[in-house]
């Protein structure tokens, strides 16, 4: 589903990613771990073209991304198949929860409004928020907002989901709500790449753990092998 081959990214003269190669099989969960500044988020953002890279190749959900500037058309095609959930949620504050979820299907995929709404309500149900369909993001808790953001991303029926530290801005209680949703998705066979500091989650859900240190793949393998048996 995802092939990353010899990827290198350079920002202000520093190689912040170097010779990164990894493979993500369909229906599996890969977690990216490692110290801050190791390049986890940059790697994730290269996968859907939010950032460019200097060397190497990415193949994702059947689309190819090459080094240098991407064409807007190509990026739009990639992003329709690749969803992303951000650390800061980035819900659209001027829209209700349900409108956040239905906006992209309607204007990008051309789904008729009633159909989009029906599916959107189903997704909110799935993340446990059908009661809050008409609520504005500002009236929701952080955990609720992140779950709406996941529903918003799922509404595009992505083949791959990217999570950029989805629980780092949340307290443990709210983290648990969000992680339960993500684990549920993983059990349903959703292919995903998750940047996280939460080794507990990695042990619980990850098929593969990739540790990035100073822009390079330090270790990669099954969770038990990389993170050890016991929790911290």
């Amino acid at each position: 589903m995802i092939e990353v081959d010899s990827l290198a990214a350079i920002r202000s003269g520093n190689r912040i990613l170097d010779a990164v190669t990894l493979t993500v099989a369909e229906g599996t969960v890969t977690t990216l771990v490692g110290p801050s500044g190791g390049g986890k988020s940059t790697l994730l953002r290269c996968l859907n073209g939010l950032e460019t890279f200097a060397e190497g190749r990415v193949t994702i959900a059947g689309h190819k991304l090459v080094a240098g500037e991407h064409l807007p058309r190509a990026l739009e095609r990639v992003r329709r198949d690749v969803g992303m959930v951000f650390q800061g949620f980035n819900l659209f504050p001027h829209l209700s929860a349900i409108d956040n979820v239905t906006l992209a299907p309607r204007i990008v995929r051309g789904v008729p409004a009633p159909e989009a709404r029906r599916r959107g309500l189903g997704l909110l149900e799935r993340v446990g928020l059908s009661r809050f369909a008409e609520a504005r993001p500002a009236t929701l808790s952080g955990g609720q907002q992140q779950r709406v953001a996941i529903a918003r991303s799922l509404a595009m029926e992505p083949r791959v989901m990217l999570f950029d530290e989805p629980t780092s801005a949340l307290d443990p209680q709210m983290s648990a709500e969000v992680l339960d949703v993500i684990v549920e998705l993983a059990r349903g066979g959703q292919t995903m790449v998750v940047v996280t500091h939460d080794h507990g989650f990695a042990r619980r859900a990850a098929t593969q753990v990739v540790e990035l240190v100073a822009g390079r793949v330090h270790r990669a393998g099954p969770a038990a092998e990389i993170l050890g048996g016991a929790g911290h």
């Binding site: 951000f86 980035n90 659209f92 204007i107 990008v108 991303s153």
Partner: peptide, 8 residues
């Protein structure tokens, strides 16, 4: 970024 990531 969120809007672009949704394919807009």
């Amino acid at each position: 970024e969120a809007a672009l990531a949704l394919g807009m």
